[in-house]
Amino acid sequence: MPDDGASQAKAAPVTANGIAAAQETKRQRIRLLVRAAGMLPVLLILCLGFHFLSEGRFFTGQNLGIVLQQAAVNTVLAAGMTFVILTGGIDLSVGSILAASAMAGLTISKLPDFGLLWLPVAVLTGLAFGVINGALIALLRLPPFIVTLGSLTAVRGLARLLGADTTVFNPSIPYAFIGNGSLTLIPGVASIPWLSVIALLVILASWLVLRRTVLGVHIYAVGGNESAARLAGIKVWAVLIFVYGVSGLFAGLGGAMQAARLYAANGLQLGQSYELDAITAVILGGTSFVGGIGSIWGTLVGALIIAVLSNGLILVGVSDIWQYVIKGLVIIGAVALDRYRLQGSART
């Protein structure tokens, strides 16, 4: 919670007791800072380590661009997943929704007169699936794991159906620039891939909703204590439909980003097991699996860690098989470190 910690820790008056209180406040502020920094040190160490091991090939403009681009889609999915996990839920269907949205988008993009509409269609397809998930969970009171496990399978089937189980190509898809173009910051020197710009905007929008709106507080409240939220007059069902809707919406956006990048989509292969990477990013980011605690900035760091790991291991020349093993171990190790770090701040 980088925005709340420092500003609220007010200086205590300097009296006999005040000095001890001031020290305590200072200690608390440091603790909050450490907590806010979260996995950032791990990310920096990983970057430096890979830079050193790859003999200076990590910190180059070109490589950093690749890392950011690779992190983009997962960041967007993980942002949606953060909303869901903050309420204590889970969304296993994002990979399938991504595929279905990309297929729907590509199909529309080939229509002569409506081609430009493919982007909103993709995003809205994702939203629709998300809202259906949310409605089943909120109104029928079904467990999120079960509902989204079901839609993981069902929506995957729909994605295959959309392209008649083939790969759909469109080499002249409109808005292709968002998949492969870059936003020039300083001509010839610095640019940033549009995919990364979108991911960053998604993070910013998520932060705004979570930290600056009434709905955001309600999301944390539902995750922290659902019964208390209900008694406090919060419309828990509306909050749940919203978070699964957001998760679906971002999965749809991710589908559009993939479609624009690849000029193609395959209902069977696209987005396979993306939900696992998204969940991993959220957990690496320090969001509590039972809900109520976490931040979107942590999720961004988590997504970057995953991207840096993939990229760095390739740079260093580790074989594909060992990459799996190392990635898995780093995830477990990082979360173990997190637990250890947070032990001191456990409430009494």
Binding site: T213, V217, Y220, G224, N225, A228, L231
Partner: peptide, 23 residues
């Protein structure tokens, strides 16, 4: 179990019922 949000700040706990009116 039914009242407070133990992980949330006192500030949010106190304001929870009137956030909408204040917004």
């Amino acid at each position: 179990a039914l009242g407070l949000f133990l992980d949330m700040s006192c500030l949010d706990n106190i304001n929870l019922a009137v956030l909408g009116n204040d917004a």
